[in-house]
Nucleic acid binder design. Structure first.
Lengths: 203, 203
DNA sequence: CAGTCAAATGAACGTACAGTCAGTTTAGCC
DNA sequence: GGCTAAACTGACTGTACGTTCATTTGACTG
């Protein structure tokens, strides 16, 4: 990589991070190119040297953010652990990730959210990253099924629902329907996901 | 109610329904006052006889929609049923409601969503309706706990998570991560919510 | 039918903001 | 230092859209 490419890469990151900060602060509606430029300490025109349209800027920022977050969770996985412990650890890793990206996720999870058209280039890219993560979680569940650690459930379905519970936990905080720190939900989600609400304890 | 009031009420409904149709078709971003006026077959100015701002129009349309949907579910409840059957029926009622409001909910659940500021008048109103519904579901769960039909779990937490699984089911369809009809998820959610993924069946 | 008035209309206005581009700065090179 | 090209700037442009208001419509009254 040449020196220029390094600088270009650096600028790109700066702008994308600025965009995410602006989204977190002003919401999707309030995210203007002017604000991103100000936040990134570059002129408006500079942004258009790196992105063709505002849409491309915003969507790229979101997709990159998603990519980084899923990578973080993936990195914490340890396939050699006993299946149930591995699932528990996976859930905790998700919670850590959610907690440290609250501000950014707020824009995606409540209120003014994304405007990606599913059938567009960006929409497909977004779904690729998202689906890959669900697939990964599903594979962990499949592994647990193969080991007889959990019952035979559709792993894709369960993985998706787990994801909904996780983002749901964050949403509940952000909507002020719960006030204790996010982390304290982790065990409750583990319990609910593993055992449901049924009476008889199933260990 | 006088004749004029009836007409006013009718116009109001027309405009709000038009607004929801436009939201469903064009998304939040693409919902303009011009489009709503065209859809409602009134002049742009007429809208401003009923609403002070576009924000009020949109937020009122959303809140009314939410109110109608939650009322629908509430109406289907039968407190005299055995607790577990009651919960199952409640979940199925939610699925029916979700299925018949897919187009409108799409705008709230994926992509271009709501822009209600939580600390505003509309935000509080929205949260009131939403929280009331969660409270209702929680009360059904509390009832089941009192009857010893399910284990002692925080009913508010469980009610919220159930809601997340339900909207999650719809989201999964809308994101094309599942293709079978929405209704077929109903049983899977009942199962997962009641029993979790644990190995030992708990009936 | 003329007169009254609230309801409705849609052309016009103002503004916010995405996108452009002529001019300026910076960096590399001889 | 002078030359060149690329990077950067920010004032400017065009437009989409929320909001206003002078005018028109039509229902009702006497």
């Amino acid at each position: 990589m040449t020196k220029e490419e390094v600088i270009k890469e650096y600028r790109l990151r700066e702008i994308l991070e600025a965009a995410r900060r602006v989204m977190a602060r002003y919401g999707m509606q309030g995210t203007t190119v002017d604000r991103v430029a100000e936040e990134a300490k570059v002129a408006k025109g500079t942004i258009y040297l790196y992105f063709d349209t505002k849409d491309e800027l915003v969507n790229t920022a979101v997709i990159e953010g998603l990519r980084e977050m899923t990578a973080e969770v993936l990195a914490s996985d340890d396939p050699s652990m006993p299946p149930l412990d591995r699932i528990r650890k996976l859930i905790l890793a998700h919670f850590r990730m959610l907690a440290s990206n609250q501000d950014f996720l707020k824009t995606l999870i409540i209120g003014n959210s994304l405007d990606i058209e599913l059938e567009s280039q960006h929409g497909r890219e977004f779904m690729r990253v998202y689906a890959a993560h669900v697939d990964f979680v599903a594979s962990v569940l499949q592994d647990a099924i193969d080991h007889g650690a959990i019952r035979r459930i559709d792993p894709q379905f369960a993985a998706f629902m787990l994801g909904e519970m996780l983002t749901g936990s964050l949403r509940r905080r952000l909507l002020k329907l719960a006030s204790s720190p996010l982390e304290s939900d982790a065990e409750a989600v583990v319990e609910l996901f593993l055992k449901g609400i049924a009476t008889i304890p199933c260990d």
